[in-house]
Nucleic acid binder design. Structure first.
Length: 418
RNA sequence: GGAGGCGUCGCCUAGUCCGGUCUAUGGCGCCGCACUGCUAAUGCGGUUUGGGUCUCAAGCCCAUCGGGAGUUCAAAUCUCCCCGCCUCCGCCA
């Protein structure tokens, strides 16, 4: 939720943000109107309550002959208060709807426009031309006995896979490498629940426009998380944090319905319903948010570099940001089989937008105020395995093992087809 | 799954039986001031959070006793539902 004070003081800035996102600036005026209406309703109800309270308190001290008329007056006021309170809760609800409809205000420098309007910040590593026709990760993975999508489909349906043998060990190696790097960098490691209550899902904004993406367990009123950003953000909900910054690296399984992506990335394990992920999450003072964002990006770059993968960093355009994000950087690795860049990590600066909704505050000079929250992928395992296999493949079907992963892979320098 | 107990403004706690005196008691901690070579001790004052009003300052007003609904002129207190924690029983990797 955006800061209503900012909205009242500088509505043009919020309108400009909407325009940059390709979103409706009219939502800003609707929110302003809802805010006005609510304040009017609150003032009216407050005043009536004050009056009622006074009369009500005089009931006890009233003399026997006064009492009936005082009681009558109190009853009449009580009914008025009831009506005013109903009007107030209606106005509250209307404000909430209008408030939730306005996404975070984008930061200065974010490229305007849609999905295609990203700006490439840098490229790390070179895309080496393959001297043979590259195979895709599924072919390679099947050859290694590392990926089994047929049995995945038999047991769980399409977009599910088994990781077996070297595939299973690769996952554990990646997770170990990622968690180790994060701990080294001062992140507190966390194994997070993958099932959360509605409030956690709502508070992080995942039941908005993308509610279709989320698995729900209706019998238990619980949701399966699509990322450990959800439990990590909700971790401190409703709390006052005195020791900022706080940094976490959470490991969890992630579940996505992929409702809107029929026919997209259907082959292999690039887009599946269940995968594991190591996610960084930071709570910081809002003044430090942009610096922290770059810090998360550096962690992602260091991790991909350790895997010896060529990648580029893009500054995602305003229209392609999630509603909570004020800025987002993606790292995209080169996928040889498709000759394209594939998103491997994504880091978002949510400023105080998410924290306001979750009630996560810190003590400042002028009392309590929301913190800033930031999240970033350190390693989305399945997709990273896919890219690793493709980039490090050799003509004979063997796969080079980056040095950083070898401690967990029996010190192998290469994986050989079965 | 069954039975019982508990939840008060940072922490602990009084109040709940029997509705109005609760503008929620006291202690600890914290902040300010006084006293004092320094510290400590002592004394005095302050210390929930959110919202409204406003010269966005003081002040004033409203709400807030785990959450919600209800009864009532009036609810921390009575009723119902929900959530969480604890104890015991059952089941279980």
């Amino acid at each position: 939720m955006i800061d209503l004070k900012l909205l009242r003081d500088d509505p043009d800035r919020v309108r400009a943000s909407q325009v940059a996102r390709g979103d409706d600036p009219g939502l800003v005026d609707a929110l302003l109107a809802a805010d006005d209406a609510r304040r009017a309703a609150v003032t009216r109800a407050d005043n009536l309550r004050a009056e009622q309270k006074a009369v009500s308190q005089s009931v006890k001290s009233a003399s026997a002959e006064e009492r009936p008329s005082v009681l009558e007056k109190a009853k009449a006021l009580s009914a008025e208060v009831k009506a005013a309170e109903a009007a107030q809760s209606e106005a509250d609800a209307a404000l909430r709807v209008a408030h939730l409809a306005v996404p975070n205000v984008v930061l200065d420098g974010v490229p305007p426009g849609g999905e295609q309007d990203y700006v490439v910040r840098e490229q790390v590593g070179e895309v080496m031309p393959m001297l043979f026709a590259p195979r895709d990760h599924l072919d390679i993975g099947v050859g290694l006995g590392a990926i089994d999508v047929e049995r995945g489909a038999k047991v769980s349906g399409s977009r599910f896979a088994f990781l077996t043998g070297w595939g299973a060990l690769l996952e554990l190696a990646l997770v170990n490498l990622a968690i180790g790097q994060a701990v080294e960098a001062g992140f507190n490691p966390v194994i997070a629940p993958a099932l959360v209550r509605p409030e956690a899902m709502e508070g992080t904004g995942f039941l908005g426009a993308h509610a279709d993406e989320v698995y729900k367990l209706a019998n238990d009123d619980l949701y399966l998380v699509g990322t450990s950003e959800v439990p990590l953000a909700a971790f401190h909900s409703g709390e006052v944090l005195d020791d900022l910054p706080m940094r976490y690296a959470g490991f969890s399984s992630c579940f996505r319905r992929e409702a809107g992506s029929h026919g997209k990335d259907t082959r292999g394990i690039i887009r599946v319903h269940q995968f594991d992920k190591v996610e960084m999450f930071s709570y910081v003072d809002p003044a430090d948010a942009e610096a922290e964002h770059l810090r998360l990006l550096e962690q992602e770059k260091a991790f991909l570099s350790a895997l010896e993968l060529p990648f580029r960093v893009i500054d995602v355009a305003a229209g392609d940001l999630g509603s909570s994000a004020a800025r987002k950087y993606d790292c995209e690795a080169w996928l040889p089989s498709q000759q394209r860049w594939l998103e491997l990590t994504s880091t978002s600066n949510c400023t105080d937008f998410q924290a306001r909704r979750l009630g996560i505050r810190t003590r400042g000079e002028s009392g309590l105020s929301p913190v800033a929250t930031l999240n970033g992928t350190l390693c989305a395992v399945g997709r990273t395995i896919a890219v690793l296999l493709e980039v490090h493949q050799r003509e004979d079907g063997s796969v080079h093992v980056p040095e950083a992963l070898r401690p967990w892979l029996a010190n192998r320098k290469e994986l050989l087809p079965q």
